[in-house]
Simulated scan of single mutants.
Amino acid sequence: MAKMKMVLRFTANDLTGQDYAEAARLRPEKRLEPEELAIWDRIAPLLAAHDYLNDLFVDSLVEYCRVVHSIDETVRYLRQHGKTYTSETRNGLQIKNRPQVGELGELRRMLRSYVSDFGLSPQARKALEAVQTDIFDDDGSDENPFTRDQASADAHIANSGTRH
């Protein structure tokens, strides 16, 4: 089986002008707030470098940017106001978690999903760097069966004993 190693570039020093151009071409100016666009500008070129940024992935990256920004805002709020508050009830004084604590947990779950989808954690990055097998290489050749002429395809089917 043919194997190929993916070479990933995950630092700004490794990016090309083409990576920045693709990120700029797809930049969703009207869909994101300025703080969210700053997140886009930081991450989109890195994703473009690995073909993880195209028209199909824009919506997911927009949501990633929103989630990261929401986490930042929620953390700032909790730092300023604390994670708990006191409430006087008929049972006396109670200490309760602010609703933002639960919201932060949900936002972090969402972020973990996007991080995994885009390969933005060490674990996800390691999976992307893993040696990958060519899906067309089940017979030892490097030939893509979808690009064969009909005679070559018929010979391949006859030799492999299976229909593809």
Rank of each mutant, 00 (worst) to 15 (best):
P28Y: 12
N91G: 07
E63R: 08
E36H: 12
Q80L: 13
I39K: 09
R148H: 13
E88W: 13
K126D: 14
S152Y: 12
Q123H: 05
G92R: 07
D41T: 03
S116C: 13
V75C: 01
R90M: 12
T74C: 11
E143H: 06
Y85A: 00
W40P: 11
R42G: 06
T89Q: 09
E33H: 05
Q94W: 00
D72W: 01
K96Y: 01
D55S: 09
L53A: 03
C65K: 06
L120A: 01
F136D: 10
E35K: 15
R108Y: 02
R9I: 13
H164M: 04
G119L: 03
L46V: 13
E29T: 09
R9T: 07
F10I: 12
L107E: 06
D139I: 09
A155N: 01
K3M: 15
T86R: 10
P45E: 04
I39A: 10
L26T: 07
T162Q: 05
S141V: 03
A2C: 06
L8P: 00
G82M: 12
Q94I: 08
I95H: 02
E36S: 13
W40M: 06
D139C: 01
M110N: 02
A48F: 00
V101S: 10
Y77H: 09
G119C: 02
R90W: 07
S70V: 09
D138T: 07
R108T: 13
L104T: 08
